[in-house]
Nucleic acid binder design. Structure first.
Ligand code: MN
Ligand code: MN
Ligand code: ZN
Ligand code: ZN
Lengths: 141, 141
DNA sequence: GTATTCGTTGAAAACGAATTTCAATTACAG
DNA sequence: CTGTAATTGAAATTCGTTTTCAACGAATAC
C-alpha cells in the first residue's frame, strides 16, 4: 500500500500505459512534503539527496501530478507556476501576503455557495475556481 | 478635459516628472476600447493605424496604466498577462469559459463581504483580490 | 535468459512572454 | 531657442516553461 496520492498516481500511470520509475516515486514523495513549490523549488529541494534527478524530470512529474488530480496548479502572481498537493480533495483558497510571501489557507462554504449561485445565474457550469486575497499579514502591516 | 482615465493618467505623469507623448495618448485611447487585452493584443490592435508604435512602448504604457490605477493586471491562465481598464473603480470578477474563451463579468457584494470577514479572522489586511470561476459557458456545454 | 519495444531520463536547446539595452529622438523647463 | 532628461522602437536579453534527442531502462515477447 501507499499514501492516498501514491495510489491515485500509480493507477493513473498504469491506466495510461506509462511506467513507474524510481525518479517519479522520489519526486512524488518530496512533493508531498512541500507547501506550494514551483518546479525550481522542488528541484532544489531534491538536489541534496538526489543530485542525479534532472529539472525536466521534476517538471514532467509535476505535470503528471496535475493531470491525475493529485496536484493543483497555482499562480500567485510571482511569475512562477506553483503546484500543491490536493490532500484528499479538500479544496481551499488563499490569503497571500504581498510583502513577505506568507500564504494562509482557508475554506469558506458560504462563498462557495454564492459562487455557484452566480454561475447558475449566467447559465455557466463551474469546473474550477480560484480565489486569492492579496494584502498584508499581521506581522507585515 | 478628457475621460476619467485620461485625467488620472495625465496627473500621474505630471506628478512623477514624466512626459506626455502622442504615443501614450494613442495607446491609452485604444486600450480603453478593448476588453481584456494582452500587450500583444493591444499592439496588434494599433498596428493598422499606427504602424510606427513599438511593442515595447505599448508594454511600458500598460505598466504605467496599472501603476496609476486605471488598469488592473489579469491572469486567466492562458500564459499571457492581460490588462483591463478599471472603469470608475467598479470592481468585478470573472467567469471564464475554458473552451471558447468567453469572459463574463460579475459583481457580488455578499462574496466581497465574506472575503473581508475571512481576512479579518486571520488578522489580514486585504489590498486586492481575484476571483475567477472557470468552466463552460451556456453555448459550450 | 535474451531480444525487442517503447516509455523515460537528463542535458541542452528552443520557446515565448516580459523586460532591458541603447542610440536616436522628443518633450519641456529655463 | 537651448540643454537636459525622458521616451522611443528595434534588437537583445532574461527567465520560466517546454521540447528535443541520444542513452537508458522497464515491460513484454520470444
Ligand atoms: Mn494551498
Ligand atoms: Mn473584466
Ligand atoms: Zn507578511
Ligand atoms: Zn464557451
Amino acid at each position: 500500500m501507499g499514501s492516498y496520492e501514491q495510489n491515485i498516481f500509480r493507477k493513473y500511470i498504469a491506466d495510461q500505459g506509462l511506467k513507474t520509475t524510481l525518479q517519479r516515486e522520489i519526486i512524488l514523495d518530496e512533493f508531498l512534503r512541500l507547501e506550494h513549490p514551483s518546479t525550481e523549488d522542488l528541484y532544489q529541494s531534491l538536489r541534496s539527496k538526489h543530485q542525479n534527478i534532472g529539472y525536466a524530470t521534476v517538471h514532467r512529474a509535476l505535470k503528471l501530478f496535475a493531470e491525475c488530480g493529485i496536484a493543483t496548479v497555482r499562480n500567485f502572481g510571482d511569475g512562477a507556476q506553483r503546484f500543491e498537493p490536493c490532500r484528499e480533495d479538500r479544496h481551499h483558497d488563499h490569503l497571500v501576503c504581498t510583502r513577505c510571501g506568507l500564504i494562509i489557507e482557508f475554506e469558506n462554504s458560504q462563498i462557495e455557495k454564492l459562487q455557484q449561485q452566480v454561475a447558475k445565474s449566467h447559465a455557466f457550469t463551474v469546473l474550477d475556481h480560484r480565489l486569492e486575497l492579496y494584502g498584508l499579514c499581521e506581522r507585515c502591516k
